[in-house]
Computed example of a mutant assay.
Amino acid sequence: MQIYQPKNGYCYNSDTLFLYDFALPFLKMRHHLLEVGAGCGVLGLLCARDSKCRLTMIEKNPKMAEFCSHNLRINHTKAHLICADFLEYDFNSQLAQNTKSQKTHSTTQIAFDIILSNPPFYHDDVIKSQNSDIFSARYAQNLPFLDFARKVNSLLKPTGEFIFCYDAKAIFHLFCVLHSYKIRPICLRFVYPKLDKSATLVLCRCKKNSKSQCKILPPLITHIDLNFTQEVLEIYKKAKTWSIKC
Results as ranks from 00 to 15, higher is better:
residue 205 R to C: 08
residue 244 I to V: 13
residue 242 W to Q: 10
residue 211 K to H: 15
residue 221 I to W: 05
residue 195 L to V: 09
residue 199 A to R: 02
residue 218 P to V: 08
residue 228 F to D: 03
residue 196 D to I: 12
residue 222 T to P: 08
residue 195 L to N: 09
residue 240 K to F: 12
residue 215 K to E: 05
residue 237 K to L: 01
residue 231 E to G: 01
residue 221 I to P: 08
residue 198 S to C: 13
residue 237 K to H: 05
residue 216 I to V: 14
residue 203 L to Q: 01
residue 211 K to C: 11
residue 197 K to L: 09
residue 212 S to R: 14
residue 228 F to L: 06
residue 227 N to D: 11
residue 230 Q to S: 13
residue 228 F to G: 00
residue 197 K to F: 08
residue 200 T to I: 15
residue 237 K to Q: 08
residue 210 S to H: 07
residue 245 K to A: 13
residue 229 T to Q: 01
residue 227 N to F: 11
residue 243 S to A: 05
residue 235 I to N: 03
residue 211 K to N: 14
residue 226 L to T: 11
residue 206 C to G: 00
residue 237 K to R: 09
residue 208 K to N: 03
residue 235 I to H: 04
residue 227 N to I: 11
residue 229 T to E: 00
residue 231 E to C: 03
residue 210 S to N: 08
residue 207 K to S: 03
residue 233 L to Y: 02
residue 220 L to W: 07
residue 227 N to M: 13
residue 197 K to P: 04
residue 245 K to S: 13
residue 229 T to M: 01
residue 206 C to A: 04
residue 197 K to S: 12
residue 201 L to T: 14
residue 202 V to G: 04
residue 218 P to F: 02
residue 202 V to P: 08
residue 218 P to M: 03
residue 205 R to F: 06
residue 198 S to A: 14
residue 230 Q to Y: 08
residue 206 C to D: 00
residue 211 K to W: 07
residue 245 K to I: 15
residue 243 S to E: 04
residue 242 W to P: 01
residue 238 K to D: 00
residue 204 C to I: 09
residue 231 E to I: 05
residue 205 R to N: 09
residue 197 K to M: 09
residue 235 I to Y: 03
residue 207 K to W: 00
residue 228 F to W: 04
residue 211 K to G: 08
residue 243 S to R: 06
residue 225 D to R: 15
residue 236 Y to P: 03
residue 222 T to K: 11
residue 233 L to E: 12
residue 209 N to K: 05
residue 216 I to E: 06
residue 205 R to E: 06
residue 199 A to P: 05
residue 227 N to G: 08
residue 205 R to Q: 11
residue 210 S to E: 05
residue 235 I to L: 05
residue 212 S to P: 06
residue 241 T to W: 09
